[in-house]
Amino acid sequence: MLEIKNIFKTFNAGTVNEKQALRGVSLSIADGEFVTVIGGNGAGKSTLMNAVAGTYPVDEGSIVIGDVDVTHLPEHKRAKYIGRVFQDPMMGTAATMQIEENLALAKRRGKRRTLRIGISKAEREEYRELLKILDLGLEDRLTAKVGLLSGGQRQALTLLMASLVRPKLLLLDEHTAALDPKTAAKVLEATQKIVERDNLTTLMITHNMKDAITYGNRLIMMYEGRIVIDVSGEEKKNLTVPQLLELFSKVSGSDEADDKLLLS
């Protein structure tokens, strides 16, 4: 479903701030796979996701989603295939627009926008039903401005928007990191529900090793712009946090793992 071949990304090339964020990342994800991504701060996780989403172009390598080579497509064209939830709860929704308007925008992701009505009556009913999945009481606040919602509510709404039109690929960038533990758990639960319901191919970044092991059926770890660990199947299921830490020290050749990886 996703075929990343040897991508490189350097920020501020040729300046003192030069930063090689991706150094030859290759990754092949099969249809329906749910991959969790871990790694220390600055390992390149977000950069990888942004490269796939097209936030910026890569310097080298190619990215293919399904059978479409998206390497040179702008972000808004790739949106047709990708559903995203950002690390920052403010990023994924339009604060000055209503909940239902945000959903209606997501409903039209990847379609040509015409002079047809922006949101129909039938849609409203659909959204009301869908919002119930989140269990946050948003179904009764369809016309509330999104700016009035809490970070957790906004993140949950963004998740719903990302999956409103079935994406070929769902990208979640630490989407629960900014939330309090209770809300985070709720949003993660909703994530699991939606991914299973629609059998979505998913890439989820997390700083929580336990979550990384619990969720999904494959786990990768990044370190200094490379993928250094890639486990799946039974091996991943039986993984424990200490094992993972040990594995990391081995590949990275250091035992700074404890400091670098935020643990739960």
Binding site: H76, A79, A94, A95, T96, M97, E101, L105, R108, G110
Partner: peptide
């Protein structure tokens, strides 16, 4: 609505195509 989204949050707008 796309225009309004563009002004309200361009990141979100692009992510919605």
């Amino acid at each position: 609505c796309g225009l309004r989204a563009t002004g309200s949050n361009p990141n979100m707008a692009r992510a919605q195509g």
